[in-house]
Computed example of a mutant assay.
Amino acid sequence: MLEETNGSLPEVDDLDWEELIEDLFEFADLYLLSKELNETKERAEEAAETLEQLYSSPSEIDLENFYADVFQAKRNFTVYFLLTNEVIEELVVNIAYSEIVDPNRKSSAVKDTFTNQLNFWNHLELLHDAEIIDDGLKGEITQVRKTRNQMAHGLESAMSELSSRKPTKEIERAERVKDRLEDLTDDDFLGLPNSPDS
């Protein structure tokens, strides 16, 4: 929206103020969500280690604090995946709008319709069909969403299934997906902080 014109910014009267304000609110929401996600990641990694120890070496678990530790670990792991999924969904929708909608047709009304009339899977398919994302990234996004749904709707069965896949690997996958999607955003418009190890 704020593209340079002959080396200068657009005139104030030329700005679409309604769209600019919406973009700023969206930026603030995503920035805060991503900041919270980065703070949650460390707790999720500790949780994953606890859960992996539980599944691989049950004899080394501190039985006195067992239930509290496991409950807290599962809670932290679940919160991380709920937040990660929110960021990924927002990134997918924003990238789809940015890359697929004709720049001459972009407006607040078009963005609202595009965002609300299509669901997450529609946006993901659009990105894939337009070859903005490849099969590998689409598959990883689908797996992160599946993990999120398992954690949100059936914690016990999700954790037993995750035990064979290693929770730390699931966190790495989620971070990889988030980083790859952030790389596709317009000039870092979303302002999402990169994860420390990327």
Rank of each mutant, 00 (worst) to 15 (best):
L2H: 09
E3Q: 06
E3Y: 08
G7T: 04
G7Y: 05
L9S: 09
D13G: 00
D13I: 08
I21Q: 00
L24V: 14
F25L: 13
F25A: 12
E26Y: 09
E26P: 07
F27M: 12
E36H: 00
L37P: 05
N38K: 02
T40E: 12
E42N: 02
E46W: 05
E49D: 06
T50K: 04
E52W: 09
Q53A: 01
Q53C: 12
P58E: 00
E64H: 00
N65S: 13
Y67V: 08
D69T: 04
A73N: 01
A73S: 12
K74F: 08
Y80H: 03
N85L: 01
N85V: 05
I88H: 11
E90C: 13
I95T: 09
S98F: 04
K106C: 06
K106W: 11
F114C: 13
T115N: 03
F120N: 09
F120D: 00
L124P: 00
L126A: 10
L126E: 07
D129G: 11
A130C: 02
E131K: 14
I132F: 08
D135I: 14
G136S: 15
L137K: 15
V144N: 14
R145Y: 01
T147F: 07
T147S: 10
R148I: 08
N149Q: 02
H153E: 03
L155G: 10
E161H: 04
E161I: 00
S164F: 06
P167W: 07
I171L: 09
R173Y: 06
A174Q: 07
E175V: 00
L184R: 01
L184P: 09
L184Q: 03
T185A: 07
P193F: 01
N194I: 10
